[in-house]
Write a protein that binds this DNA or RNA. Structure first.
Length: 413
RNA sequence: GUGGGAUUAGCUCAGUCGGUAGAGCGCCAGAUUGUGGUUCUGGAAGUCGUGGGUUCAAGCCCCACAUCCCACCCCA
């Protein structure tokens, strides 16, 4: 038997109802904040991600689906920010008035070992605001994403923020960190000893308990921010407080992508096991230039792990009701009710039309959770009044088509 | 890439000492005429993850692989 490839999965009803609800909630919120949808290709030249995401990151070095296409190296997108910036540059969106506010949703691909909340094809809902370095935009983006989570029905999540500095101050911090790790690292876990060499910032993210006091003693990035970065971060926090958004500053929070600078943020939720991050985002003021933009195009964005959000929200069952199940008796009734079904469906009702024995039709209607069953035989057709049975109460009335539509309308409110 | 657990009917799972499979739920069909839920009866459905090995005989023992789950790494 052929099965879905490792790390990918089929999304089936009723789960897809939850996915759709999450997506439509996101679209509503995006609209309210004046964001517009962008759809970029799932395939890009490999070079885009190497330059955008960072050639030394794990994503690029070992997690991408890359193949040769007649001499050109192509890659299934592992994330979407680089693509959006590429499109922004390619189509000269910098020439458009104001900040470009773009959102997207769709599949991403990373060749990682699958795990709870982690798949090789996973879905992200994200947005990018390009063309402003104002902290006001940072706060608005964060406000927007919190709004999406809340309206999607997520509760009990925690917003973490940090500033990772810029090309001016971060190198100095990393240098200092390296210096202190020369003494500290040998006392730490094996992973940290390795990280101290390869990626010192990652040491801060270590979860090994005995290492924590050592990490606490290491310098904080926040003490090394240059004046512009420090001011920017202060304003972001101030704007968040103005909005009544609760956050926690996590100077040790490190992000996996090279392009982040200044503001970074993350939302975590307890229901997700080890993959507790629902969303990550941050500012990337140098990304556009590194992808070839001639003009400075600072931006900030985020992406929600939709698989994880759906997982956290899925508890509350959204069942989509079937308004009417039609049970025609005989060929003439089938033809007659097919036309009625079309009219009622045009009226916006969810209608199922069946053939076969009445008893069987009733069983199916019951299993589908139909609110009403309409029974139509020769008697009904002759009278122009149809038997409408309320499945919850068992009450059955003889009604005209218009009266049936009215009854369905009342019930669906 | 590393480690641990799992894999038997559509689903959740039993399966004794090695003797070629069971339950519950679900599905389908009946219990006289055009009426669901409860009940009763019957039925279909399994290459026991795949491929090897041991054995007279393997769901069960051995090996390899695959997939899923959990964790590490890393990350949404």
């Amino acid at each position: 038997m052929i099965k879905a490839v490792k790390g990918t999965r089929d999304l089936l009803p009723p789960s897809t109802e939850v996915w759709n609800r999450v997506e439509s909630v996101a679209r509503e919120v995006f609209r309210a904040y004046n964001y517009h949808e962008i759809r970029t290709p799932i395939l890009e030249e490999t070079e885009l991600f190497a330059r955008g995401v960072g050639g030394e990151t794990d994503i690029v070095t070992k997690e991408m689906y890359t193949f040769d296409d007649h001499g050109t190296s192509l890659t299934l997108r592992p994330e979407n920010t680089a693509s959006v910036i590429r499109a922004y540059i390619e189509h000269r969106l910098d020439q458009k008035p104001g900040v470009q506010k773009l959102y997207y949703m769709g599949p991403m691909f990373r060749r990682e070992r699958p795990q709870k909340g982690r798949y090789r094809q996973f879905f992200q809902i994200g947005a990018e605001a390009i063309g402003s370095d104002s902290p006001l935009i940072d706060a608005e983006v964060i406000e927007m994403v919190v709004e999406i989570l809340q309206r999607a029905g997520l509760s009990g999540f925690k917003l973490l923020i940090n500033s990772v500095g810029d090309g001016n101050c971060r190198p100095q911090y990393v240098e200092q960190l390296r210096e202190e790790l020369k003494d500290a690292a040998p006392k730490m876990c094996g992973d940290c000893q390795r990280r101290a060499e390869t990626n010192p910032l990652r040491v801060l993210d270590c979860k090994v308990e005995p290492d924590q006091p050592i990490i606490d003693a290491l310098p904080s990035i926040l003490d090394y921010l240059c004046e512009p970065c420090r001011l920017h971060f202060e304003k972001v926090k101030q704007f968040l407080t103005d909005r009544g958004i609760e956050y926690e500053v996590r100077p040790r929070m490190v992000r996996g992508l090279d392009y982040y600078m200044r503001t970074t943020f993350e939302v975590v939720h307890g229901s997700l096991g080890a993959q507790n991050s629902v969303l990550g985002g941050g500012r990337y003021d140098g990304l556009a230039e590194s992808l070839g933009s001639k003009i400075h195009s600072p931006g900030i964005g985020f992406s929600i792990g939709e698989d994880r959000l759906v997982m956290s929200v899925e508890g509350e069952q959204t069942n989509v009701p079937l308004d009417l199940f039609i049970a025609p008796l005989g060929d003439a009734a089938v033809r007659h009710t097919a036309v009625m079904a079309r009219d009622l469906r045009r009226g916006g009702f969810a209608v199922e039309l069946a053939e076969g024995k009445l008893k069987r039709a009733m069983e199916i209607a019951n299993k589908l959770g139909a609110r009403f069953v309409m029974i139509v035989g020769d008697n009904e057709m002759a009278a122009g009044r149809y038997a409408l049975k309320n499945m919850a109460s068992g009450e059955q009335l003889q009604l005209t088509q218009d009266e049936i539509a009215a009854a369905l309308a009342v019930a669906s409110n």
